[in-house]
């Protein structure tokens, strides 16, 4: 990975927290600068030292302010876990807002994975011995790729919430055509912006190579990634999640992994299902 992980700055407040070993669940905003000059941020709660740290990653084009992510983070912090919830930069310094589909997206999947590695190292540098990776939606794909690519022994478990494939309706004729077209453009060195179907975006504006970096993570590749994973993995899915299409949940169930489904829950585990989600995650961490 070309990103050398350097922690340039860190909050004085955070240092105080670490030294005192506070057990309160007060979250602090961490700002760091990557080697490429981009500034990234994360929410961090220092938990009890004898408990693992959770790294929670948001979904596609979202931030750590996503309700599912931030609420889960608060719940785990209350349980005494250290919680780190980074916001992927997606090529933007100090990104604070979720990005719209229509804005140019030159960012790459690999850069996202590298940022995960940056934050894992950030935790390790602070003496964390046990890390649980928790992803939401397509954030799981980056974590899956990461866990296979960077096998740290401190990473103990992977909990995938609402795990879905990147390539929306992959296998559809139109998607296959746009995928092949993009491959052709990359070969020709064409860096122009194009419209694509990707994840929930009907008009995802990106150069072909950036698009392919995400779109290549289709269902089969994810399933292969899960099979190859050396970590214990627990998948938590909402039964009413309308993004789990084309029998995706059945394909996941066919894997030798534990799948926990929540009746009535949607993709974001809204409303009362939020508590079901928290219970399931806490239980999965404890097991």
């Amino acid at each position: 990975m070309n990103h050398t992980i350097l922690s340039m700055t860190s909050s004085i407040l955070l240092a105080c927290h670490l030294m005192i070993g506070s057990t309160t669940a007060n979250a602090t905003e961490i700002k760091e600068r990557l080697a490429n000059g981009l500034e990234v941020s994360a929410e961090f709660s220092q938990g009890q030292r004898d408990k693992p740290a959770a790294l929670i990653l948001h979904g596609f084009l979202q931030t750590q302010n996503n309700a599912t992510v931030s609420n889960l983070g608060n719940a785990l912090a209350t349980e005494g876990l250290s919680v780190l919830a980074p916001t992927l930069s997606l090529g933007i310094s100090q990104r604070r807002q979720s990005l719209s589909c229509e804005t140019p997206h030159p960012h790459h999947f690999d850069a996202d994975v590298a940022e995960v590695e940056f934050w894992v190292n950030w935790l390790l540098q602070r003496g964390v011995k046990s890390i649980i990776l928790i992803g939401h939606s397509t954030g799981n794909v980056q974590l899956l790729a990461y866990a296979n690519q960077y096998p740290h022994q401190e990473i103990k478990k992977f909990i995938a919430i609402s795990l879905i494939e990147f390539a929306r309706e992959f296998g559809g004729k139109q998607n296959i055509l746009q995928f092949r077209q993009a491959q052709k453009q990359v070969k020709q060195g064409d860096t122009r912006l194009n419209d694509y179907n990707l994840s929930y975006c009907n008009k995802y504006i990106a150069p072909a190579d950036a698009y392919l970096s995400y779109a290549s993570w289709d269902g089969n590749r994810i399933l292969a990634g899960i099979r190859a994973l050396k970590l214990p993995i627990v998948i938590i899915a909402g039964e009413a999640d309308d993004r789990m299409r084309n029998g995706w949940i059945n394909k996941l169930k066919a894997l030798p992994v534990k799948i926990s489904t929540v009746k009535g829950a949607n993709h974001f585990f809204s409303d009362i299902h939020e508590f079901d989600l928290h219970d399931r995650v806490i239980k999965a961490i404890a097991e």
Binding site: L38, G91, I92, S93, Q94, R95, R96, Q97, L99, S100, E102, T103, P104, P106, T191, L193, I205, P207
Partner: peptide, 26 residues
């Protein structure tokens, strides 16, 4: 000043024309 996409374009001016003609105007 607070629009992340402004910073994105300053960091990556390759797609400035697209951004200016589509995102900015809309």
């Amino acid at each position: 000043l607070n629009w992340d996409e402004v910073k994105q374009q300053l960091a990556n001016p390759n797609y400035y024309d697209y951004w200016r003609d589509n995102r900015l105007k809309s």
